[in-house]
Design a binder for these strands. Structure first.
Length: 262
DNA sequence: AAATGAATACAAATTACATCA
DNA sequence: TCTGATGTAATTTGTATTCAT
């Protein structure tokens, strides 16, 4: 299903494998002291308030061209997005989902959510189409909605309440939906980054294994040479390994190339 | 100033639904 | 038409932080 889809995560990968250094990319900056060996930081820190959104026409996303899904829904007589949208107009006091019991009906969270006009998609309210009253309806965001959310996420991956409300209004969604989308989006980003990190570490491991194998071989060769003095006298200067402070790669230099000791 | 509780935000884990092959 | 896989919206729970008392 996802094979042809671009995930659009827009990750900025700062990971580098040693084998990539020699080509066109400049050497990486020295790592920060006492930090992770490579920057794993995914997220920019939350920026100050988002610039004022240009309010789009309130109906902008009702004419979704989200081909397949929307066409199917309409064809079946159930336009999920639209149904929710209509309810949005007067659902601000609705409460919980069927599954959320305590935490949504009492206590601090529910208070916040009620104030936010959230938790409004309870199928108890919207299932006039005969849907299972115990289940939850799931909204599929239109391409336009997703694009705007994505665009906003690229600017900053968190929203303050003001931004959330504005964006929700712009997209004709509930603030809670915007909030959930951002939460899920952050989770996806983190997951992707974790996968990248794993791949990086795997390659590093491979490289180190290969390096270790090479060094082991060199050691055994040197030991063999040590046993035959006539070769030992004629051999080239011993090689030494130095650690490049910038890229932390092992560089091989011969004694002839080394600067004289101070 | 320290303790406490409420409110809030977020991450992580999970569930449940929509969609596709 | 059915089914399993996949993506993702939504929920639940726990934790950290902030703020007022």
């Amino acid at each position: 299903m996802s094979s042809s889809r671009d995930d659009g995560l827009g990750l900025s990968l700062s990971l580098r494998c040693p084998e990539n250094h020699s080509h066109d990319s400049p050497p990486p900056p020295p790592p920060p002291p006492a930090a992770a060996p490579f920057p794993l930081n995914l997220f920019r820190s939350p920026l100050p308030f988002m610039q004022q959104h240009k309010p789009s026409p309130p109906d902008a996303f009702h004419h979704s061209t989200d081909g397949n899904m929307e066409a199917r829904s309409i064809f079946r007589g159930i336009d999920v997005n639209r149904a929710i949208t209509v309810i949005d107009c007067d659902e601000e006091v609705m409460v919980s989902s069927p599954n959320s019991t305590v935490s949504s009906l009492s206590g601090k969270r529910s208070e916040r959510e009620e104030n936010d006009g959230e938790r409004a998609t309870s199928s108890l309210e919207i299932d006039d189409d005969g849907a299972d009253a115990a289940g939850r309806k799931k909204l599929r965001l239109s391409k336009e909605q997703a694009a705007v959310l994505e665009e906003t996420f690229m600017e900053h991956n968190t929203l303050n309440p003001k931004q959330k409300t504005a964006l929700a209004k712009q997209l004709n969604l509930r603030p809670r939906q915007v909030e959930v989308w951002f939460q899920n989006r952050r989770a996806r980003t983190k997951l992707k980054q974790t996968e990248v990190d794993c791949e990086y570490l795997r390659r590093c491991c491979e490289n180190l294994t290969e390096e270790n194998r090479r060094l082991q071989k060199e050691v055994s060769e040197l030991r063999a040479l040590k046993l035959s003095p006539q070769f030992y006298m004629n051999m080239s200067p011993p090689t030494t390994l130095t650690m490049c402070p910038q890229c932390e790669r092992v560089a091989v230099t011969s004694a002839a190339q080394r600067p004289p000791p101070r």
